[in-house]
Design a protein around this nucleic acid. Structure first.
Lengths: 227, 227
DNA sequence: ACAAAAGTGTTCGTTATACACCCATGT
DNA sequence: ACATGGGTGTATAACGAACACTTTTGT
């Protein structure tokens, strides 16, 4: 064997309410209880399992630490610089995941697992700051051309909710009229025929995602890269 | 240790003349001299080295099998399905590389190393057909928005040569006028002031790549992902 | 002079963007 | 009735594709 340790980590994103109730793009971190970097926060993960696919391992570690199931999971990058861990050579295959908001509400939290705003988290162990930065960049870039925003929402949603997801992730306001037309032109969503009542104004149409269309053009990898 | 073997492989692309002298997008393959898949062609690669970065290992394996130095090298994907090798669990971090045409002419070739057209190669060992297909897709996709075409050429080139690279990779003719304007607008190239004489017609300007601009927007990973 | 490729100009259709405006509901 | 967000229409700009046209060399 090569003396190289293989690990799997996951950057998990969800939209969660902050102290004032405003939704914020957030991610769960785990506090390290051992050296190196004891006490520092880090990405959830662990050693790769010989019997599982890498994506399965990522989803399992995700579930073990947060109690959540991802609605989107994709490989991010394999980090393998020789000096990235003081304990020896570790290659980490990193995944990134999205979870539904209501799912994220049920997330475990405790002394050693906590959620932080995606762009205001403490300095992390190892090279995890770089990894989170790259995952954030991928999320924001991919949101522009791939149909992944629904992964933050439940099975049905209004276009205003979908637009809010884009606005929160991209951190800039979007024109409601143009956003509507872009989404409609993409064919990504289908109206359910129902409307959301209970608001203080005209009830908006509810939509669901068109599951007959591939969520992203991933090329020949297809669903192998995403689950 | 986990019982998982870590390997590094590389998909290498170059534009090489075929029997009739026409340039074709090609890649070098190595013939397996051991089971499993003995006699079948496969991607160059081997076990990861504990002392080197993954990219260095990819470049070294590339040099060892083909005698070439890559002008572009980027991580493609980590393939790790449990059943992808009959000998046991192998996770392969795969890179893709571009080499200059004149460099590729000096490439080693022999009984167990040969070049094949990128879209007409024999059935490969392991899941390497999938890998090559994905690498081809990435190359063609990335050529559209990133400044990588020059990696197939020498230090200076004409816009017609650069356009030919695009046409050969994308397998479709491009409008010379529009191509010129797109490249000029991107600011990717700078005129050297010289012209290429010796042709049968008006001598074209020679250009070189503007190295002060990052070749691609790779986000916070920056040059870490590319070398 | 002519062929061939270099290089420029112009038109046209699509798409992004900004913003004015109407619609439907709860209060 | 009116405030509020849902939803539609429209003018403008930016961009890419198509193609006519001029320029410059070798033969």
């Amino acid at each position: 064997m090569s003396g190289i340790e293989l690990a799997v980590s996951t950057v998990i994103f969800a939209l969660r309410p902050d102290a004032e109730g405003r939704l914020v793009l957030s991610l769960p971190l785990v506090r390290r209880i051992r050296e190196p970097f004891e006490g520092r926060w880090a990405l959830p993960g662990g050693a790769a399992d010989a019997g599982e696919s890498l994506a399965d391992t990522a989803a399992r570690k995700l579930a073990e630490t947060t109690g959540l199931a991802p609605s989107y999971l994709e490989q991010l990058y394999a980090f393998g610089e020789p000096d990235r861990s003081p304990t020896g050579r570790v290659v980490s295959v990193v995944y990134w995941a999205l979870v539904h908001g209501d799912e994220a509400d049920r997330a475990l939290e405790g002394e050693n697992v906590a959620w932080f705003p995606a762009d205001a988290h403490p300095a992390l162990a190892f090279d995890h700051d770089l990894i989170v930065g790259y995952a954030l960049w991928r999320l924001r870039t991919k949101l522009g051309y791939a149909r992944i925003a629904h992964a933050f929402l439940g099975p049905t949603f209004t276009l205003a909710e979908l637009r809010q997801v884009h606005e929160l992730v991209l951190q800039k306001p979007l024109d409601p009229a143009n956003f509507r037309r872009q989404i409609e032109a993409s064919g990504a969503v289908v109206p359910t025929g129902e409307r959301q009542t209970g608001g203080r104004h005209r009830p908006p149409k509810l939509y669901r995602y068109d599951t007959t269309i591939e969520p992203v053009d991933t090329g020949p990898l297809g669903a192998a890269g995403i689950r």
